[in-house]
Design a protein around this nucleic acid. Sequence first.
DNA 1: CAAATAGTGTCTTTTAGACACTATTCG
DNA 2: CGAATAGTGTCTAAAAGACACTATTTG
Lengths: 211, 211
Amino acid sequence: MYRDSSGKTLEDYPRPSVAVDTAVLTVPPDEALSVLLVHNKEGWRLPGTFLHENERLADAVLRSLRQKAGVTGLAPRQLKVFDEPGRDDRGWVLSVAHVDAVPASRLDLTESDARLVPVDADELRGLPYGHGEIIEAAVAALRASYEEHPDPARLLQRPFTLRELRKLHEAVAGQPLARDTFRRLMEPQLSATGQMSTGRVGKPARLFWHE
Amino acid sequence: MYRDSSGKTLEDYPRPSVAVDTAVLTVPPDEALSVLLVHNKEGWRLPGTFLHENERLADAVLRSLRQKAGVTGLAPRQLKVFDEPGRDDRGWVLSVAHVDAVPASRLDLTESDARLVPVDADELRGLPYGHGEIIEAAVAALRASYEEHPDPARLLQRPFTLRELRKLHEAVAGQPLARDTFRRLMEPQLSATGQMSTGRVGKPARLFWHE
DNA sequence: CAAATAGTGTCTTTTAGACACTATTCG
DNA sequence: CGAATAGTGTCTAAAAGACACTATTTG
């Protein structure tokens, strides 16, 4: 047992509880970029949990998402630590905000108190515990990661046309993107599968994949 | 006192100790971008401290820097949380890494076990507790902030010539910068003071200030 | 055939980089 | 005067944006 110069151990000093809260972002088919909210006694909020003993923060995030949205296999990224004393009336609580993105098809919202809300909804401005601020930072982080790369969060699960990729980017960016500029930036980073899209109106498009 | 569904309070669950560690970056006159290290029983490391009860993380950073380098009035920025169990043999310790930048003239290294080390020194690669990784992230964050703006960390304390500003940017970037491109980017963001530099060889240069 | 979409080419504008030239000061 | 630095102009190359045109499919 480690003792400091006054003979005390770390356990003799007060310690905060540590929580994780996560903005899970997704793009449902033909819808806008949305964030996952869960319901508890106090209202709608980001999914979160308290850190267990000797658990990694990322593992606590995965545990909370498995329980609250039935989703697994994510790769959460830290955003920032919320440390205002008094922000949680249960006591001294630090919260480490995270962001992650997941294909909408992998979220199971059927039997849980969970739903998706578009990230520009007014409702999100008023969330307690700084959760609105977390969502803003999460959206900014996702937008930055999509700015230069085709699909860093792997939101597309199978080969896609340039149109499908552009529609995804437009949902993430929240604004339309020029077709030719988009193609010029993305095509060099993609590999053609050799197959073509079928079924819809218009000339069939090449299907691409990346990495 | 808040009690959960099993009647327990937050204090009944195990909690980690929380520390802060800070990479303090500076550019001494005519030297390279450097980081502040302090000495303790185990060797050289980044300055840090344990978070006190109900203290803000930024305040813990300021407290540790006041004690260990006699510097005040900084504005620390969070980088990331280190959470590997077992990273600290004193027990379960989370560490929140921070970065800050300060004019070299404001550091008091005379009577403390502290020194400045250039950020590209091999010695920094081997620091324990992920401190080498913190320094890399801190340098990247500082470089990103100087990429587009004249002096976001206020490392220049009085009016400066474009040459002085460029030398600062070259120290931060770790590489030479083209004179004309640099001027084209920075001059629109500066205000001329109307005064000129004196004393050195060459044509006197205009002195600028910003904000 | 009309509408919709894919694929490609080209022109213009903007920006970044390279370089050249003149101006002013110190030693 | 010569070296060093400031200030400005200009040419070129690269990138971004706008637009036009052809090709191929569905209904």
